[in-house]
């Protein structure tokens, strides 16, 4: 069986708006006859194992300090210049680097170093406000999740 051309991976956790990545996947899972493969990740490093099977990878993750959905496309990941400018864009989105696991930027950089990045990678950053245990989804995030799922669907169908 051929590997699906498109993989959509939502990164998240049960904490407040951090579940945005998973909820976008839930929206897409309800679409009949969707050919894209859908995965939920709790940590970015899981993407390394999944991305080798895809030609296009969409990554959805919640992000603080942004007002609207931000889309970053790495159109030609084999090019060093392209990857550098894309990583710089990701850096602008988040300065949060973990020491206990590989953050999303490091995972993309590592996958690039290993020649594992799909031909096209698109990062969808969904604006989030609350990321603590027991916090509900913020209204802004909830609206953005629906819009992100719609925009993604337009791209992958």
């Amino acid at each position: 069986m051929n590997a699906p051309e498109t993989l959509v991976a939502g990164i998240g956790s049960p904490l407040g708006d951090d579940r945005a990545g998973w909820l976008v996947i839930d929206h897409l899972a309800d679409i009949p006859q969707l050919t894209a493969r859908l995965r939920k990740a709790s940590s970015p490093h899981q993407l390394i194992d999944w991305m080798t099977d895809a030609r296009t990878l969409h990554i959805v993750d919640a992000c603080v300090d942004i007002e609207t959905i931000t889309r970053i496309e790495i159109a030609n990941p084999q090019s060093s210049n392209q990857i550098d400018s894309s990583l710089a864009e990701i850096d602008q989105l988040s300065q949060c680097h973990s020491t206990h696991h590989l953050d999303l930027r490091s995972v993309i950089e590592l996958a690039h170093s290993l020649g594992k990045l799909p031909q096209r990678v698109v990062l969808w950053a969904v604006p989030g406000l609350y990321f603590a245990a027991d916090q509900p989804l913020s209204e802004r995030c909830e609206r953005a999740i629906g819009r992100c799922a719609e925009s993604l669907l337009e791209e992958i169908q």
Partner: peptide, 21 residues
């Protein structure tokens, strides 16, 4: 960094990632 090492020793780092998995 490990990322720089991955450029120089991709097979070894890939092997390591597979073991970690």
């Amino acid at each position: 960094s490990g990322i720089d090492l991955a450029k120089r020793f991709p097979d070894e780092v890939n092997r390591g990632l597979r073991l970690k998995k």
